[in-house]
Write a protein that binds this DNA or RNA. Structure first.
Lengths: 204, 204
DNA sequence: CTAATTCTGTAACGATGATTACAAAATAGG
DNA sequence: CCTATTTTGTAATCATCGTTACAGAATTAG
C-alpha cells in the first residue's frame, strides 16, 4: 500500500549517484543547483522536495560514496591473498579513479576533507570514520602477516606498536598516492610509490 | 625616479600574503572578492587595478606560497643531520600548519590541486613543479644515506631504483600526512605515521 | 602653478547563486 | 467522480557573485 499522492519518477539512489558525479567534477562550492539538476535529470522542485537543500544532498552523496568505498576496501583487504598482495591490490584499485579522462578525477572523501574540513562537521565526521575503518583493516592485515611470518617482527619492536605504525604509514602513503595521482597525473610516479611502499613494509 | 601618478598605499607582497590566508581559509570558489578585500585591506578598485582579477591573484598567491614552501623544505633537507633526522624534521615541520585553530588549516598547494586540479592549467603546473622538486630533494637525501651507509642497500636492489621508490614512498606518505592531519586533526595518528615512515625506510 | 598619470573608494552592472512559491499533474482512498 | 496528498516544472525572489565605471585624491614633471 503505497502512500497517497503522485509517485516519484526517480529512484533516490540513482539521484544520489548522479550527485556524487556532479560533486566529484565540480566540488561543493562550485557545484550549482543547476549543475545538480542537469546531472540528476531532476527539476529544481523535485530536487529540493526530495533532498531539502544542496548541503543535505552533498552529505547524502558523501555518505553513499563512503559506504561504497568502505565495502570495496573491505572486500579487497579480506581476499585470500598474502598481505603484500592485498595491500598492492588496494593501492592499484585506486588508479582507475585517479587516472581518468573526466575533468576532475579523484576521491570524493579526500576532496571533501580538503575543501570543507574544519568548517563542516558532517564532512569531518565522515572523513574520520572512514579513516578509522581503513586504519583498522590495514592493522588487521599486518597482524595476520606477522602471524604467518610474512612480515618479520624486529627483535626490539613491540608487535602492536610496530603494526600500528606501519599500518598508518601505509594508509598515509595511500592517501598521498591519491593526492599525487590527481595532481600530477603521473602513472610512473604512482608505480614507484606503490613499489616503494610495499618494499618498505615487507622488504625485498 | 618613481613613476608618475599616485603612489600605491600597500606592498604587493603583503597583499599576496593576505590573499594566501584568505584562499587557505575559504578555498578558491568560496572566496569572494569581498573576502579578499577584507583580508587584504584593499578596496575593490585597488585590488582589481593591481592584480587583474580573482584568478590571477589566486595564482600569484599560490606561486608565492609555493616558493616559500620550497625554500623552507630545501633548508630542512640540506641541514647537516642524518638523513633520518632530516626527513623527520620535514614531516614535523608540517604539523603546526595542519594542527591550528584556524578554521581551515592545511597546505594551499594540496588544497588547490584537490579543488582545481584537472581544470586549471596553472594549478596543475605549479603542483607538478612543486612535487618534482620535493621528489628530487628526497632522492638526494636518500642517496647520501646510501653513501654513508645509514641506509643499507639490499643485495638484490639497484641503487637508483631503490632510492627512487623509497623517496616517492616518503613523499607520498608526507602528502598523506598533510591530508590526514587536516581531515582528522589527530596528532597521535600523525605521530604514528611519522614513526612508521621512518622505521619502514631506515629500519629500527 | 598646470598637465599627465596612477591609485583609491564607491556605486553600479549584469549574471548567477541557492532557495521558495505555486499551479498543474498524478496518484490513492472512498 | 471527488478529495486529499504528493510530485513536478516553471517562474520568481532575494542575495551575492566577479567585474567595471568613474569621480576624486595623490603624486611627478615641467
Amino acid at each position: 500500500m503505497p502512500a497517497p499522492g503522485r509517485p516519484r519518477e526517480f529512484k533516490d539512489q540513482r539521484v544520489v549517484e548522479a550527485a556524487v558525479d556532479a560533486f566529484l567534477n565540480k566540488g561543493y562550492a562550485a557545484c550549482s543547483a543547476q549543475d545538480l539538476c542537469e546531472q540528476t535529470g531532476l527539476g529544481r522542485g523535485s530536487l529540493y522536495n526530495a533532498f531539502g537543500n544542496k548541503h543535505e544532498l552533498y552529505i547524502e552523496a558523501l555518505e553513499h560514496y563512503d559506504q561504497e568505498g568502505i565495502t570495496e576496501q573491505q572486500r579487497i583487504l579480506q581476499q585470500s591473498l598474502s598481505a603484500k598482495e592485498r595491500l598492492q591490490t588496494l593501492f592499484e584499485y585506486a588508479l582507475p579513479f585517479d587516472f581518468t579522462d573526466q575533468q576532475k578525477p579523484g576521491c570524493l572523501i579526500i576532496n571533501a576533507a580538503m575543501e570543507r574540513g574544519g568548517m563542516d562537521d558532517d564532512v569531518d565526521r565522515i572523513f574520520r570514520r572512514h579513516v578509522d575503518i581503513l586504519e583498522q583493516m590495514i592493522v588487521q592485515v599486518l597482524h595476520e602477516a606477522i602471524a604467518t611470518g610474512e612480515l618479520p617482527l624486529p627483535q626490539s619492536a613491540v608487535a602492536d606498536t610496530y603494526v600500528a605504525e606501519l599500518a598508518d604509514m601505509a594508509m598515509s602513503s595511500f592517501y598521498g598516492l591519491r593526492v599525487l595521482n590527481k595532481g600530477t597525473q603521473n602513472p610512473a610516479l604512482a608505480s614507484r610509490i606503490i613499489r616503494g611502499t610495499l618494499t618498505a613494509i615487507f622488504g625485498n
